[in-house]
Write a protein that binds this DNA or RNA. Structure first.
Lengths: 116, 116
DNA sequence: GCGATACCGACAATCATTCTCATTAAGCGG
DNA sequence: CCGCTTAATGAGAATGATTGTCGGTATCGC
């Protein structure tokens, strides 16, 4: 399961992970895939985000630091992006409106060079 | 339907809109709620975003311009935010990695003044 | 080896969302 | 007002992702 995520260089849905694992001949249940993915997410080893249709997408990330993603909406390939601009903007906006304890999500969706 | 969205000053799920409309005595089907909400979204009159569990949440927005939200994770109240910094960051990042046709999502979650 | 325990796979259940289709409402020329 | 065409609607079935259930199995300390 971990291998499947590492090998893919983009986000995979739970179904895709399931198919990939099955493809290696390993006999595994779909429920287990969800359980293990959730465990990986809880452990901080995998990033999860919601596609535009609300489906959960998983990815093994190279860094455990806070970062964002640039995702190809065609092939799923993704690039990790760090940005101080976003962090600054988030903190600034929160302060201006009296909000505390603020977190944020930010993802970019487009077509990668190959899929253009 | 529009009234229900306007009256709430936070995001509502499709089910909540459905309940609100039914509460007024209006006889309407759930499928119609989804259809009309989608139409409103397409027309730019309503914003939609995905909650952390993937559920679609709708809100009547005051401006039809592109903007983001600062949302209280306790009471659901939200503030609309415009930011040129984000737009610049998105365009810049996309260009740098050869992505085209890029859109983005960015939301801030925190506790509003009253809920702090 | 033995019992306690955690994990697992198969499948049923749930929940949001979409699809289907017969029905109804609305526009319109006569 | 009438009949006809067309778009929108409601009810409920269908779909698809995700989660729960439960009997079975591998594991570990003793």
């Amino acid at each position: 399961m971990w291998n499947a995520l590492e090998r893919a260089d983009g986000f995979l849905s739970a179904q895709e992970v399931f198919d990939a694992v099955r493809g290696t001949g390993e006999r595994v249940g779909l429920a287990t895939v969800y359980r293990r993915l959730q465990a990986l997410v809880d452990g901080g080893d995998v990033d999860v985000l919601r596609g535009e249709d609300g489906e959960a997408l998983y990815r093994a990330c190279r860094t455990s630091e806070h970062h964002h993603h640039l995702i190809c909406r065609n092939c799923g390939a993704s690039v990790e992006i760090k940005s101080t601009a976003i962090e600054r903007w988030a903190a600034e906006s929160a302060r201006k409106h009296g909000f505390t304890d603020v977190t944020h999500t930010a993802e970019l969706y487009g077509r990668c060079r190959r899929c253009s």
